[in-house]
């Protein structure tokens, strides 16, 4: 349908080059990130994440994990750092993310990363999260386990699908996830 857009007046458009930003250490500032506050440090780190060659990703991952371990990190900072680990994290990030997954307040942030991480370690961490999460977080967790389409989750998903004690939404997600494990019903690998 029509999308009524008029051109902006040039003086009201933010056009900031990706190379722009204050000459301060973004890694020390990112832990203070708040919704609505200065986002330039996050933008700089986001650009680093996007532009770093594969050979440099391990070092970048370590920087993200160091920032995440800062006791002063805000919830917004934690969420942002996890969103970047979702792109460049590896098995090295799993222990930290696994601990965050176990706490309801940080479970979503950790799951956002773990769902996208390749490897058996991340898959195992998500399965382990079932022992600690309930309610909304548990439903989301089962969705993440299903989204990975990992054959190793088949047994757990089967149990969840058939467990009358689980929430109906969990049983439904587990049932659909099992169907996705059947090769004939899947599209291109996720």
């Amino acid at each position: 349908m029509n999308t009524p857009d008029s051109p902006p007046s040039p003086d009201r458009v933010v056009v900031v080059g990706a190379e722009a930003g204050p000459n301060v250490d973004s890694w020390s500032q990112i832990v203070r990130l708040e919704h609505g506050g200065d986002g330039s440090f996050a933008a700089i780190i986001r650009e680093q994440v996007g532009r770093t060659p594969v050979a440099g990703l391990a070092k970048l991952e370590a920087q993200l994990l160091r920032a995440l371990a800062d006791p002063a990190v805000t919830a917004a900072g934690r969420d942002f750092l996890c969103s970047q680990l979702a792109l460049v994290g590896s098995a090295a990030a799993v222990p930290v993310l696994g601990r965050l997954l176990a706490a309801e307040a940080s479970a979503d942030a950790a799951r956002v990363a773990l769902e996208r991480l390749p490897g058996a370690e991340a898959a195992a961490a998500l399965l382990a999260g079932l022992s600690s999460l309930s309610g909304r977080a548990r439903i989301g967790l089962v969705g993440s386990i299903g989204a990975r389409r990992s054959p190793g989750a088949r047994e757990t998903l089967s149990r969840l699908a058939g467990d009358a004690g689980e929430h109906a939404e969990i049983r439904a997600i587990a049932t659909r996830a099992l169907a996705l494990l059947r090769p004939a019903s899947t599209g291109p690998a996720a």
Partner: peptide, 14 residues
């Protein structure tokens, strides 16, 4: 990894 993203709880693509 940018082809998708994890959803906020309780939502999922599955």
């Amino acid at each position: 990894r940018l082809r998708g993203r994890a959803a906020r709880s309780p939502w999922s693509l599955v």
